[in-house]
């Protein structure tokens, strides 16, 4: 286990180094960040002052060293837009995204895992066929459109829920459902195929032949064995959503999370903030993936991760 953890940690460090190098390359080589941040009317003096204050007048190698050592200390400099350390701004938004993603995953699991299970019991049956086409529609639905339509029906027409913003739990309902409905199809499908795979194994016949009840076998044996791919997918989807993939939903509902912050940083031309965002998002994914691997090892002794 310790060897496994050390190995995961090492590969995490490699990934983070690559990300940092890419960010450095994109922001220093492909463009002049000073020009982007300054208004068009800025004078040469303004330019020089900002360049010096960002350390961009140094040699590229020096800059790269500063950048890497800054990233290690999690110091990315001050957000141009907010005037406070960029990392603080990013961390301030993390809880909102976490709230949204966990709520939507709860909805998706409660709705779609039982659906996938039910469909797997009768492959080719009416429920199965509905599930296959419904999940296709869910996956094909543009989130920004589904979100807008939900707002139109439940906020504008029926007046049951607020249109956007954050605050009480009622603000969380529509964004969480939008996210859950568009990713739920995948969860239902993987549940179905994983269950089917297990249901066809001889141990199921043996247990049934021994006289064990249908639902006992189903929940105590089949479901537990089928769980691994489902947990993998949920972890994967959560990690991506945490890393900014919830940006569309956050924008539709003005939810103050990571993704929306990225869009705001673009509008504010705040490259420092964007750099911090990319770094933190990558870090979140590395951490979530490592935790997920540890969980697999705990729920399934068959997993040999090294």
């Amino acid at each position: 286990m310790i060897r496994f953890l050390a190995w995961r940690l090492l590969s995490g460090v490699v990934v983070m180094t690559l990300v940092t190098a890419t960010v450095f390359f994109v922001t220093r080589m492909l463009t002049d960040p000073v020009r982007i941040m300054l208004p068009l009317s800025a004078s040469q003096e303004d330019y020089d002052r900002l360049e010096a204050s960002l350390g961009l007048d140094q040699h590229l190698v020096t800059q790269f060293w500063e950048f890497i050592s800054g990233a290690v200390r999690l110091d990315f400099g001050e957000s141009f837009w907010q005037g406070v350390p960029a990392l603080e701004v990013v961390i301030g938004r993390l809880p909102s995204t976490f709230q949204l993603v966990s709520a939507s995953m709860v909805v998706a699991v409660v709705l779609f895992v039982p659906l996938g299970m039910a469909a797997s019991l009768k492959p080719g049956g009416w429920l199965d066929r509905i599930l296959v086409s419904a999940s296709l529609f869910g996956l094909s639905m543009p989130q920004f459109w589904l979100g807008s339509m939900l707002i139109f029906v439940f906020s504008v027409k029926l007046g049951w829920l607020p249109t956007s913003g954050s605050g009480g739990p009622e603000h969380l309902v529509l964004p969480a459902f939008t996210l859950a409905l568009t990713s739920g199809g995948r969860i239902a499908q993987i549940t179905r195929s994983s269950m089917l795979d297990q249901l066809n194994r001889p141990y199921v016949t043996t247990l049934r032949a021994k006289g064990m009840g249908r639902s006992y076998v189903l929940f105590r044996h089949v479901l537990r064995n089928a769980l691994l791919p489902i947990v993998t997918l949920i972890a994967y989807e959560s990690a991506f959503a945490m890393a900014g993939y919830a940006v569309i939903v956050e924008t539709v509902f003005a939810w103050p999370g990571i993704g929306r912050l990225a869009v705001q940083a673009v509008t504010q031309r705040d490259i420092v903030l964007l750099q911090a965002l990319v770094f933190v998002a990558a870090l979140v994914v590395v951490v979530v993936n490592t935790i997920a691997d540890v969980i697999y090892k705990m729920i399934d002794p068959r997993v040999n991760i090294s």
């Binding site: 990300v19 982007i36 900014g244 990319v278 998002a281």
Partner: peptide, 18 residues
């Protein structure tokens, strides 16, 4: 590695820069 890495924010950064 690229498949496992969520590149959306990187894409946003690249687009905002160029």
């Amino acid at each position: 590695a690229q498949l496992a890495f969520p590149g959306l924010l990187l894409v946003i950064l690249i687009i905002s820069v160029i």
